[in-house]
Amino acid sequence: MWDSFGFEFVNYYFVPGLVLGCIYALGAIGITLTFGILRFANFAHGEIMMTGAFLTWTFLELSKLIFGFYFHPLIACIPSIFIAIAIALSVDRFFYKPFRDSPTIMIVMASFGMMLIIRSLVQVIWGPNQITFVKGIAKPNGILRDLSGSFDMMLLVPSKHVFIILGTVIIMLAFNYMLTKTRIGKAMRAVSDSPDLAKVTGIDVEQVIRATWYVGGFCAVMAGVFMAMDTQFIMSTMGFRMLLPMFAAAILGGIGRPFGAVLGGLVIGFAEELSAYPWFGNGPLLSPGYKSGVAFSILVVMLIFRPSGILKGRVF
């Protein structure tokens, strides 16, 4: 059973699907938080992700220049996180805050504009071309291979994927702790519930909004770096390419539901990878060229039949 079906399915479809799902999940957290707390679809979110990946690449190159060797991307991303959060906060301050009391559509337009501004800025600084993020072929993680091999269920998972999956799990646990145990996390849930009530309860909504950018920015950079680790290259359009699957994940999980977003991300990630699996006959179910259309199809079906998402989020 494992030889004929399981090995191929798990190693070439399931694990990649899980990895992609983790990346989408992290990205979707930021989208669903801004949707819940600031009540708008932040089109610039993918660009923060992409910027985080470019900054991390820069710090990787700097580490080579200064110390003579490449840091691990998960070390090099630490300063990028701070810069990305600073960008997110200043974008909010100068381009979103003026529209807090305006119709939602104004701030959506502003974020639409920010999407282009940030991307253009990255293209001016780093150029429009694809850049290699990490060189070399990713070899399967030896420990995991031997361990699983001894159970006759050999897993050929590259170390980068182990990092991505474990990293996502840790971030999720921390995020869960924050939302349920800390004061600011509970306030984020409260504002997401009802901004008006939060205001008359005395909650400092601006402080909660800043916290949202911290969390969203952090998760976005991690998603961007994980994406770069997975594909081993970065390019300025990667944010836009991921925007749709992330929106799909956020809506699928239920708007304003962070854990719904995680679930949605996993579903979209699996669906994209598994759409290429030869379920019937020998050919892939769906030509790989249409892989990026999967997220959108799920999104449309969802919007028509269950706009509140799997976990019954808010319908605007």
Partner: peptide, 17 residues
């Protein structure tokens, strides 16, 4: 409005695909 924006972006991408 913002859902429609997302949906139409997606439609445009599918058409190009």
């Amino acid at each position: 409005a913002d859902y429609l924006a997302i949906a139409t972006i997606g439609i445009a991408e599918i058409i190009k695909l």
